[in-house]
Amino acid sequence: MSQFHFDVSLEEFESKVLALAQEVPVVVDFWAPWCEPCKTLKPLLEKLAEEYAGRFLLAKVNADESPELAQHFGVRSIPTVKVLFQGQLVDEFTGALPEGQIRAFLDRFALPPVAGSNPREEAAELCANGQFEEALAKLIEASRAKPEDQAIQLDAVEVLMHLGRNDEAGELLGGEYSQEVDRANALRARLALTAGAADTAEIEARLAANPADHAARLELSRAYAAQSRFREALEAALEVVIRDRSFDEGAGRKAVLQLFEALGGSDQYDDLIREFRRKMSAALN
Protein backbone atom coordinates (compact mmCIF):
# COMPACT_ATOMS: atom_id res chain seq x y z
CA MET A 1 0.00 0.00 0.00
CA SER A 2 1.11 3.54 -0.73
CA GLN A 3 0.41 6.70 1.19
CA PHE A 4 0.04 8.56 -2.12
CA HIS A 5 -2.45 6.34 -4.01
CA PHE A 6 -5.24 4.09 -2.75
CA ASP A 7 -8.47 2.32 -3.73
CA VAL A 8 -11.69 3.89 -2.56
CA SER A 9 -15.33 2.74 -2.41
CA LEU A 10 -18.60 4.63 -1.98
CA GLU A 11 -18.53 4.06 1.78
CA GLU A 12 -15.00 5.45 2.10
CA PHE A 13 -15.31 8.32 -0.35
CA GLU A 14 -16.11 11.05 2.19
CA SER A 15 -13.28 10.15 4.57
CA LYS A 16 -10.66 9.16 1.98
CA VAL A 17 -11.37 11.75 -0.71
CA LEU A 18 -13.62 14.66 0.28
CA ALA A 19 -11.94 15.27 3.63
CA LEU A 20 -8.40 15.00 2.25
CA ALA A 21 -9.29 17.19 -0.73
CA GLN A 22 -9.73 20.14 1.62
CA GLU A 23 -5.94 20.20 2.09
CA VAL A 24 -4.44 18.56 -1.00
CA PRO A 25 -5.69 17.98 -4.59
CA VAL A 26 -7.12 14.50 -5.02
CA VAL A 27 -7.06 12.92 -8.47
CA VAL A 28 -9.95 10.45 -8.78
CA ASP A 29 -9.36 7.78 -11.41
CA PHE A 30 -12.55 5.99 -12.50
CA TRP A 31 -11.46 2.67 -14.00
CA ALA A 32 -12.74 -0.86 -14.61
CA PRO A 33 -11.01 -4.25 -14.88
CA TRP A 34 -12.24 -4.81 -18.47
CA CYS A 35 -10.98 -1.43 -19.70
CA GLU A 36 -7.83 -1.74 -21.84
CA PRO A 37 -6.80 1.97 -21.67
CA CYS A 38 -7.14 1.76 -17.88
CA LYS A 39 -4.36 -0.83 -17.85
CA THR A 40 -2.04 1.86 -19.24
CA LEU A 41 -3.35 4.90 -17.37
CA LYS A 42 -3.73 3.52 -13.84
CA PRO A 43 -0.10 2.35 -13.34
CA LEU A 44 1.13 5.58 -14.93
CA LEU A 45 -0.90 7.66 -12.46
CA GLU A 46 0.37 5.48 -9.60
CA LYS A 47 3.97 6.06 -10.70
CA LEU A 48 3.42 9.81 -10.91
CA ALA A 49 1.70 9.88 -7.50
CA GLU A 50 4.84 8.33 -6.01
CA GLU A 51 7.08 10.74 -7.90
CA TYR A 52 5.10 13.84 -6.88
CA ALA A 53 5.30 12.54 -3.30
CA GLY A 54 2.16 14.06 -1.79
CA ARG A 55 1.75 17.10 -4.04
CA PHE A 56 -1.48 15.35 -5.06
CA LEU A 57 -3.17 12.12 -3.95
CA LEU A 58 -4.61 9.47 -6.26
CA ALA A 59 -7.93 7.83 -5.38
CA LYS A 60 -8.81 4.84 -7.60
CA VAL A 61 -12.51 4.07 -8.02
CA ASN A 62 -13.60 0.79 -9.62
CA ALA A 63 -16.65 2.04 -11.53
CA ASP A 64 -18.12 -1.45 -11.71
CA GLU A 65 -18.04 -1.80 -7.92
CA SER A 66 -19.10 1.81 -7.18
CA PRO A 67 -21.53 2.76 -9.97
CA GLU A 68 -23.17 5.35 -7.71
CA LEU A 69 -19.95 7.36 -7.60
CA ALA A 70 -19.50 7.13 -11.34
CA GLN A 71 -23.08 8.29 -11.88
CA HIS A 72 -22.74 11.12 -9.36
CA PHE A 73 -19.68 12.49 -11.18
CA GLY A 74 -21.24 12.10 -14.62
CA VAL A 75 -18.76 9.49 -15.80
CA ARG A 76 -19.83 8.38 -19.29
CA SER A 77 -16.71 6.51 -20.42
CA ILE A 78 -13.78 4.75 -18.80
CA PRO A 79 -11.16 5.82 -17.88
CA THR A 80 -12.22 9.23 -16.60
CA VAL A 81 -10.12 11.35 -14.26
CA LYS A 82 -11.57 14.07 -12.01
CA VAL A 83 -9.63 16.39 -9.70
CA LEU A 84 -11.16 17.60 -6.43
CA PHE A 85 -9.68 20.36 -4.30
CA GLN A 86 -11.18 22.48 -1.54
CA GLY A 87 -14.71 21.40 -2.31
CA GLN A 88 -14.48 22.03 -6.05
CA LEU A 89 -14.08 19.99 -9.23
CA VAL A 90 -11.00 21.78 -10.59
CA ASP A 91 -10.04 19.73 -13.66
CA GLU A 92 -10.73 16.51 -15.55
CA PHE A 93 -9.94 14.45 -18.63
CA THR A 94 -11.14 11.27 -20.33
CA GLY A 95 -9.06 8.52 -21.91
CA ALA A 96 -5.42 7.45 -21.57
CA LEU A 97 -3.20 10.44 -22.35
CA PRO A 98 0.58 10.33 -22.99
CA GLU A 99 2.76 10.81 -19.93
CA GLY A 100 3.91 14.27 -21.01
CA GLN A 101 0.33 15.53 -21.26
CA ILE A 102 -0.56 14.01 -17.90
CA ARG A 103 2.41 15.73 -16.26
CA ALA A 104 1.31 19.05 -17.75
CA PHE A 105 -2.22 18.36 -16.46
CA LEU A 106 -0.95 17.57 -12.95
CA ASP A 107 1.32 20.60 -12.83
CA ARG A 108 -1.69 22.90 -13.22
CA PHE A 109 -2.97 22.09 -9.72
CA ALA A 110 -0.36 20.03 -7.82
CA LEU A 111 0.94 21.63 -4.65
CA PRO A 112 4.39 23.24 -4.97
CA PRO A 113 7.29 20.93 -4.08
CA VAL A 114 8.78 21.17 -0.61
CA ALA A 115 12.45 22.14 -0.79
CA GLY A 116 14.67 19.09 -0.51
CA SER A 117 11.76 16.63 -0.78
CA ASN A 118 12.34 15.39 -4.33
CA PRO A 119 15.90 14.69 -5.50
CA ARG A 120 14.79 14.33 -9.13
CA GLU A 121 13.28 17.82 -9.11
CA GLU A 122 16.37 19.20 -7.37
CA ALA A 123 18.57 17.56 -10.01
CA ALA A 124 16.37 18.95 -12.81
CA GLU A 125 16.74 22.45 -11.36
CA LEU A 126 20.52 22.02 -11.18
CA CYS A 127 20.56 20.92 -14.83
CA ALA A 128 18.48 23.95 -15.80
CA ASN A 129 21.21 26.09 -14.25
CA GLY A 130 23.94 24.19 -16.09
CA GLN A 131 25.19 22.47 -12.91
CA PHE A 132 25.38 18.97 -14.39
CA GLU A 133 28.10 17.60 -12.09
CA GLU A 134 26.09 18.65 -9.03
CA ALA A 135 22.93 17.15 -10.55
CA LEU A 136 24.71 13.85 -11.20
CA ALA A 137 25.95 13.72 -7.60
CA LYS A 138 22.38 14.33 -6.38
CA LEU A 139 21.02 11.52 -8.59
CA ILE A 140 23.73 9.06 -7.53
CA GLU A 141 22.87 9.74 -3.90
CA ALA A 142 19.15 9.31 -4.63
CA SER A 143 19.76 6.07 -6.54
CA ARG A 144 21.69 4.61 -3.62
CA ALA A 145 18.73 5.38 -1.38
CA LYS A 146 16.20 3.97 -3.89
CA PRO A 147 18.04 1.45 -6.11
CA GLU A 148 14.74 0.15 -7.47
CA ASP A 149 13.78 3.56 -8.92
CA GLN A 150 14.57 3.26 -12.62
CA ALA A 151 13.47 6.83 -13.36
CA ILE A 152 16.33 8.16 -11.22
CA GLN A 153 18.81 5.91 -13.05
CA LEU A 154 17.61 7.19 -16.43
CA ASP A 155 17.83 10.79 -15.18
CA ALA A 156 21.49 10.01 -14.44
CA VAL A 157 21.93 8.67 -17.98
CA GLU A 158 20.65 11.95 -19.42
CA VAL A 159 23.02 13.96 -17.24
CA LEU A 160 25.97 11.76 -18.23
CA MET A 161 25.13 12.40 -21.87
CA HIS A 162 25.03 16.16 -21.23
CA LEU A 163 28.51 15.81 -19.72
CA GLY A 164 29.75 13.87 -22.75
CA ARG A 165 30.37 10.76 -20.64
CA ASN A 166 28.68 8.56 -23.22
CA ASP A 167 30.55 5.36 -22.36
CA GLU A 168 29.22 5.51 -18.80
CA ALA A 169 25.75 6.35 -20.09
CA GLY A 170 25.92 3.32 -22.38
CA GLU A 171 26.90 1.05 -19.52
CA LEU A 172 23.90 2.21 -17.49
CA LEU A 173 21.60 1.74 -20.47
CA GLY A 174 22.81 -1.85 -20.79
CA GLY A 175 20.52 -2.85 -17.94
CA GLU A 176 16.84 -3.79 -18.15
CA TYR A 177 14.29 -1.06 -17.54
CA SER A 178 11.00 -2.92 -17.31
CA GLN A 179 9.28 0.04 -15.61
CA GLU A 180 10.65 2.65 -18.05
CA VAL A 181 10.85 0.76 -21.36
CA ASP A 182 9.92 3.62 -23.70
CA ARG A 183 12.19 6.14 -22.06
CA ALA A 184 15.14 3.73 -21.95
CA ASN A 185 14.73 2.93 -25.64
CA ALA A 186 14.53 6.63 -26.49
CA LEU A 187 17.74 7.30 -24.58
CA ARG A 188 19.46 4.42 -26.38
CA ALA A 189 18.38 5.97 -29.68
CA ARG A 190 19.67 9.36 -28.54
CA LEU A 191 22.98 7.86 -27.49
CA ALA A 192 23.30 6.29 -30.93
CA LEU A 193 23.06 9.80 -32.42
CA THR A 194 26.33 10.76 -30.74
CA ALA A 195 28.10 8.61 -33.33
CA GLY A 196 27.40 11.46 -35.77
CA ALA A 197 29.80 13.85 -34.03
CA ALA A 198 31.56 16.07 -36.59
CA ASP A 199 32.81 19.61 -37.16
CA THR A 200 29.60 21.56 -37.76
CA ALA A 201 31.48 24.65 -38.99
CA GLU A 202 33.05 22.70 -41.85
CA ILE A 203 29.70 21.20 -42.93
CA GLU A 204 27.98 24.59 -42.67
CA ALA A 205 30.62 26.04 -44.97
CA ARG A 206 29.99 23.29 -47.52
CA LEU A 207 26.27 23.97 -47.39
CA ALA A 208 26.78 27.71 -47.79
CA ALA A 209 28.70 26.96 -50.99
CA ASN A 210 26.07 24.47 -52.22
CA PRO A 211 22.65 24.72 -50.50
CA ALA A 212 21.38 21.83 -52.66
CA ASP A 213 23.81 19.35 -51.08
CA HIS A 214 21.18 17.29 -49.26
CA ALA A 215 23.68 14.69 -48.06
CA ALA A 216 25.68 17.42 -46.35
CA ARG A 217 22.51 18.81 -44.77
CA LEU A 218 21.69 15.41 -43.28
CA GLU A 219 25.28 15.09 -42.09
CA LEU A 220 24.86 18.47 -40.41
CA SER A 221 21.62 17.29 -38.77
CA ARG A 222 23.47 14.30 -37.28
CA ALA A 223 26.31 16.56 -36.10
CA TYR A 224 23.85 18.92 -34.40
CA ALA A 225 22.10 15.97 -32.73
CA ALA A 226 25.43 14.68 -31.44
CA GLN A 227 25.87 18.06 -29.72
CA SER A 228 22.29 17.91 -28.30
CA ARG A 229 21.31 20.82 -30.57
CA PHE A 230 18.06 19.06 -31.34
CA ARG A 231 16.05 21.97 -32.75
CA GLU A 232 18.79 22.69 -35.27
CA ALA A 233 19.05 18.97 -36.06
CA LEU A 234 15.32 18.80 -36.77
CA GLU A 235 15.40 21.97 -38.85
CA ALA A 236 18.23 20.62 -41.01
CA ALA A 237 16.55 17.24 -41.58
CA LEU A 238 13.17 18.86 -42.28
CA GLU A 239 14.78 21.19 -44.81
CA VAL A 240 15.77 18.11 -46.82
CA VAL A 241 12.14 16.94 -46.74
CA ILE A 242 10.99 20.35 -47.95
CA ARG A 243 13.60 20.60 -50.73
CA ASP A 244 13.40 17.00 -51.97
CA ARG A 245 11.25 14.54 -50.06
CA SER A 246 12.37 11.64 -52.28
CA PHE A 247 16.11 12.25 -51.81
CA ASP A 248 17.92 8.99 -51.00
CA GLU A 249 14.63 7.09 -50.60
CA GLY A 250 13.17 9.59 -48.13
CA ALA A 251 16.30 9.98 -46.01
CA GLY A 252 15.16 13.38 -44.72
CA ARG A 253 11.88 12.02 -43.38
CA LYS A 254 13.68 9.03 -41.83
CA ALA A 255 16.13 11.39 -40.10
CA VAL A 256 13.27 13.43 -38.62
CA LEU A 257 11.54 10.27 -37.37
CA GLN A 258 14.79 9.03 -35.83
CA LEU A 259 15.05 12.29 -33.91
CA PHE A 260 11.44 11.97 -32.74
CA GLU A 261 12.26 8.49 -31.42
CA ALA A 262 15.38 9.73 -29.64
CA LEU A 263 13.59 12.64 -27.97
CA GLY A 264 10.32 10.88 -27.21
CA GLY A 265 11.23 9.65 -23.74
CA SER A 266 11.74 13.08 -22.16
CA ASP A 267 8.93 15.48 -21.29
CA GLN A 268 11.17 18.48 -21.95
CA TYR A 269 11.06 17.73 -25.68
CA ASP A 270 7.30 17.15 -26.01
CA ASP A 271 6.59 20.64 -27.34
CA LEU A 272 9.51 20.45 -29.78
CA ILE A 273 8.28 17.11 -31.14
CA ARG A 274 4.71 18.40 -31.53
CA GLU A 275 5.98 21.50 -33.35
CA PHE A 276 8.02 19.51 -35.85
CA ARG A 277 5.33 16.87 -36.36
CA ARG A 278 3.07 19.70 -37.53
CA LYS A 279 5.81 21.12 -39.74
CA MET A 280 6.59 17.76 -41.32
CA SER A 281 2.90 17.07 -41.90
CA ALA A 282 2.63 20.43 -43.68
CA ALA A 283 5.75 19.68 -45.74
CA LEU A 284 4.41 16.31 -46.87
CA ASN A 285 0.90 17.51 -47.74
Rank of each mutant, 00 (worst) to 15 (best):
R165Y: 08
L173D: 05
A142S: 06
A142Y: 04
S266V: 09
E219K: 11
A201Y: 08
A251C: 10
V159A: 07
T200A: 15
L163S: 10
A197E: 12
E239D: 15
A223Y: 02
I242E: 11
L238K: 01
M161C: 13
R277I: 06
L257D: 08
A142H: 01
E261I: 03
E204M: 12
Q153W: 01
S221Y: 08
L139F: 00
R217T: 11
L187M: 12
L173H: 05
G265R: 00
L154A: 15
L218G: 03
A233H: 02
A216E: 06
I152N: 04
A237N: 04
I140Y: 05
A137W: 02
V157Q: 08
L139P: 07
L220I: 03
A237L: 04
L163W: 09
F247D: 09
A215W: 00
K138A: 09
F260T: 04
G170P: 07
R222N: 14
R217G: 11
V256F: 09
V159I: 12
A223N: 07
S228A: 14
T200L: 09
L187N: 09
E134H: 02
E202W: 03
T194S: 11
A135D: 04
E148I: 05
A237M: 06
G175M: 04
A197H: 03
I140W: 02
S178I: 13
V159Q: 00
L193K: 10
A198L: 12
L139V: 04
H162T: 08
A151Q: 14
A212T: 08
A195F: 02
R190C: 04
A192I: 01
V256G: 13
K254F: 10
V256W: 08
V241W: 03
I273T: 07
Q179K: 15
E219C: 09
E239T: 14
E239Q: 14
K146S: 13
L234P: 03
R188A: 11
R245P: 02
